[in-house]
C-alpha cells in the first residue's frame, strides 16, 4: 500500500473533517472528488502535515508519515492547484534550489521533461499558463523520482484540451506500476477519463472510497410517481420533485425492496449532486 490514511480528523470553528480513511495502491490513479468546500484540500494538507490534525494516522510507503517525514518527502511530490509561489522567478532559478533538496535528482530526466513539456527554463513562472505550471511541477516531481504524486485541483482552470493532455500524462505516469497519483478535483469528467479509484468526500466525511466502477454500481438513479416517493422516501439519499413525479438516488443494496421502480446507473455528477442535496436537507431540518 503506497498510501494509507486512517481516521484523520481536523476541527475548525465552522468545519469538521472527520474520520477520513482511505487507501491507495501502487500503480493506480485515485481521484479525490467533492464539491467546493467539501474538505479536499484540508484532507491533502492533513495527510502531508501542513495543518495540525487532531487525530489520525498517515502511512506512506508503509511508514508512519510523522515519524519519517523527511525520508518520505524525498519520494513524494505535492502540488497545489495554482502553484503560485515565486511567480517572478525564472524556472531555471527555482529548479536550481529545488534540486538541492533531493539527493536522487536526475538532471537528464529533468531536461527530458522540459523538452517533452516544451518548458523554457528562462521563463518566469508567471509567464506560464496554468497547464504549463502543472507540467513544470510534474517535471520537478518526476526528476526526483517521486513515487507518490499528490495534486490539489490540477485541472481546475484548464481548458478541455489542456485537461485532456494532463490526464493522459497521469495515465502514462502510472504505466510502470510503481508510481501512484492522487489528485483532487470537482470536475467529474476528469475521473471518468483516467481514475482507477475514487474517494468521494462530502461535508468533511468520506462517502465512499472504492474503484470507479464499484462507486457507480453502489448507487442507482430512480424515478417514479409521487405515490412511489411516499413509500421509498426514507431509503433515498435525496430526491428532486419534477412534473412527472420524482427523481432520486438510492443505495443499490436497498433497490431490491422496490422491484417495480425504474432505475438506471447514475453518473458521478448525479452521485455528488444528490449527496450534497441530502446535506442541505439535513441542515434545513436541523434549523
Amino acid at each position: 500500500m503506497i498510501l494509507k490514511v486512517e481516521n484523520l480528523r481536523k476541527e475548525y470553528e465552522t468545519f469538521l473533517l472527520d474520520d477520513i480513511s482511505f487507501e491507495l495502491e501502487e500503480g493506480y490513479i485515485m481521484g479525490f472528488i467533492g464539491s467546493n468546500g467539501a474538505g479536499k484540500t484540508t484532507t491533502l494538507k492533513g495527510i502531508l502535515g501542513m495543518i495540525q490534525t487532531e487525530a489520525g494516522d498517515v502511512e506512506i510507503f508503509g511508514k508512519n508519515f510523522k515519524e519519517n517525514e523527511i525520508a518520505i518527502k524525498q519520494d513524494i511530490a505535492f502540488m497545489t492547484g495554482s502553484s503560485d509561489y515565486y511567480l517572478r522567478r525564472k524556472i531555471r532559478v527555482i529548479t536550481k534550489v529545488v534540486k538541492s533538496f533531493y539527493p536522487n535528482w536526475n538532471d537528464a530526466v529533468y531536461e527530458n521533461y522540459l523538452r517533452k513539456f516544451k518548458l523554457d527554463p528562462e521563463k518566469k513562472v508567471m509567464e506560464l499558463s496554468q497547464g504549463m505550471r502543472v507540467k513544470y511541477s510534474l517535471a520537478l516531481a518526476l526528476s526526483h523520482e517521486a513515487k507518490l504524486i499528490i495534486l490539489d485541483e490540477p485541472t481546475s482552470g484548464l481548458d478541455p484540451v489542456a485537461r485532456d493532455d494532463l490526464l493522459e500524462i497521469f495515465q502514462e505516469l502510472v504505466e510502470d506500476g510503481q508510481k501512484s497519483v492522487l489528485f483532487s478535483t470537482h470536475i467529474t469528467s476528469d475521473l471518468e477519463k483516467c481514475a482507477d479509484y475514487i474517494t468521494y468526500i462530502n461535508e468533511g466525511k468520506i462517502i465512499k472510497s472504492t474503484s470507479k466502477d464499484e462507486l457507480l454500481d453502489s448507487f442507482r438513479l430512480v424515478n417514479g410517481s409521487e405515490e412511489d416517493l411516499k413509500t421509498m422516501k426514507q431509503d433515498l439519499i435525496s430526491y428532486k420533485i419534477n412534473s412527472f413525479g420524482f427523481l432520486g438516488l438510492i443505495d443499490t443494496a436497498k433497490l431490491s425492496r422496490y422491484p417495480e421502480i425504474n432505475s438506471e446507473a447514475p453518473s458521478l455528477d448525479d452521485i455528488m449532486i444528490y449527496h450534497a442535496k441530502r446535506e442541505e436537507t439535513h441542515a434545513e431540518a436541523a434549523v
Binding site: M50, E69, A71, K73, Y85, Y86, R88, F101
Partner: peptide
C-alpha cells in the same frame, strides 16, 4: 507575496 511557506513545506524538510 512569494508564498514562501507553501513552497518550503513541499520540500523534504520539517516545519
Amino acid at each position: 507575496s512569494q508564498n514562501d511557506n507553501s513552497f518550503s513545506i513541499m520540500m523534504p524538510v520539517k516545519k
